[in-house]
Simulated assay, not measured.
Amino acid sequence: MTATEDLIASAEAHSAHNYHPLPVVVASAEGAWMTDVEGRRYLDMLAGYSALNFGHGNQRLIEAAKEQLGRVTLTSRAFHHDRFAEFCARLARLCGKEMVLPMNTGAEAVETAVKTARKWGYRVKGVPEGRARIVVAANNFHGRTTTIVSFSTDPEARADYGPYTPGFDIVPFGDLGALRDAVTEDTVAVLIEPIQGEAGVLVPPPGYLQGVRELTRERGVLFVADEIQSGLGRTGRTFACEHEDVVPDVYLLGKALGGGVVPVSAVVADAEVLGVFRPGEHGSTFGGNPLACAVALEVVAMLETGEFQQRATELGEHLHAELGLLAGSGKVVAVRGRGLWAGVDIDPSHGTGREISEKLMERGVLVKDTHGSTIRIAPPLVISKEDLDWGLDQLRSVLG
């Protein structure tokens, strides 16, 4: 038995089977490349679902973490620490907002947004107690908590976890008419992903986000944009909403905010929204800890230069042009996405998404399938054009 086989067998024996990973065991990584326990290198074309926008082992982020590790890593919010104020101020400025509520994971940010919207609805909008409702989109993916899966339409994510949390109305993604019909006097928020990642990198029709913004403003409802996967440079802009010149009331951030080093998430909004909280009403032991703030501050500094957004724009145009040629050849049914982010629907005659992912793994490229025939391509924004082209060459070879 090889080292890979031995480690996979041990993992299968001693861990819950809530994931179905590709049969590769990563031991080290740098930039856009990962190396397994047997020394074989793989081009990472997934980037931890956008958590690794700045690549593996980014030296600026590693140095920021090391420096903070030698000082203080955790205080809890029982005390102030010397990185917190700067982190909140810089992130708020990046978002064009006034306040930040830091958490750890993306799901925690979404849960916090649900609580924020409901509390805002009762205290500011004047919705009668217990009647607040939030409109969400079908095929969404916002996390895995009990409340979040209550408004999922994915049977795998939702089945067997009831009873489900009430208070959510589901409408088709991209359908402004359905959204308008769903908003009532009790609606406190519209919660959507500007681009639906897990669903297969679904980009809404032109004007949709602008329509959501206009409708929510007109009806006195919060527009909450889940930019956890789409934000922080991935699409060629700091936020995917910027492609339609839209500024939501609330940004939800995560994944890349932690630089692939530590989990960091945040809810970012103006004081009218986040000002509804009082001490003791919401919290997190690790939320906004010194180590997280130090790393996230460096992430914000890197984004402030615009360098990574520009790379995602330029390389993204090249990526989509090349994938478009595959679609024109009939080997690929459809390609969607923005920047360095693409959902690729494979012609079923070439295999399932899982089978294509496994074949690419054998050729040294790592992607991940979703919803049967779709593979997602989302390399670190630091990938070179040469490496990107090599990865695309492997996809062409797999598809014959």
Rank of each mutant, 00 (worst) to 15 (best):
A64R: 01
L91Q: 03
H80P: 02
F84W: 09
T75R: 03
L94E: 04
R41M: 08
R40M: 10
L61D: 04
F79V: 14
T75Y: 03
Q68Y: 02
A32I: 01
L52D: 02
G48Y: 03
L46S: 13
A78H: 10
N58H: 15
S28K: 08
L91A: 04
G55M: 05
L52E: 03
A78D: 12
G70W: 10
G48V: 11
L61Q: 05
L74S: 10
C88I: 00
H80V: 08
M34S: 06
H81C: 06
N58Y: 06
S50H: 07
Y42G: 02
R41N: 08
F79E: 15
L46W: 13
L69H: 07
E38M: 07
M34Y: 04
R60I: 06
W33P: 01
W33L: 10
S76Y: 09
E30S: 14
L69M: 14
L46Y: 14
N58L: 09
G57Y: 08
H56Q: 09
R77D: 11
K66N: 11
A65C: 08
V72L: 12
Q59D: 12
H81L: 08
D44T: 05
G48Q: 06
G70R: 15
L46H: 14
P23L: 05
A85D: 14
A64S: 11
A85Y: 04
F87M: 11
V25A: 10
V37L: 07
V24F: 10
L74Y: 10
V37D: 06
E86K: 13
E30L: 09
F54S: 04
R41K: 15
Q59C: 05
A27E: 15
V37N: 08
A92D: 01
I62Q: 03
R90F: 00
W33S: 09
S76H: 11
H80T: 13
L43N: 01
R40D: 09
V37I: 15
T75E: 01
R41Q: 14
F54I: 05
G70A: 15
V26P: 04
G70F: 10
T35H: 04
Q59H: 12
T75D: 02
Y49H: 10
V72F: 01
E86I: 05
R60P: 00
F87K: 04
A64H: 03
P23N: 10
G57R: 12
A29M: 03
V37G: 07
L43Y: 02
R60D: 15
E86G: 07
A51L: 07
R77N: 13
G57T: 11
R41Y: 00
G39R: 06
L46V: 11
A29E: 04
G55D: 04
F87R: 04
R40C: 06
Q59S: 14
S76L: 11
Q59A: 14
T73M: 12
F79L: 14
A32D: 07
R40E: 10
V37K: 07
A92V: 06
D36Y: 06
S50L: 00
D44R: 02
T73F: 07
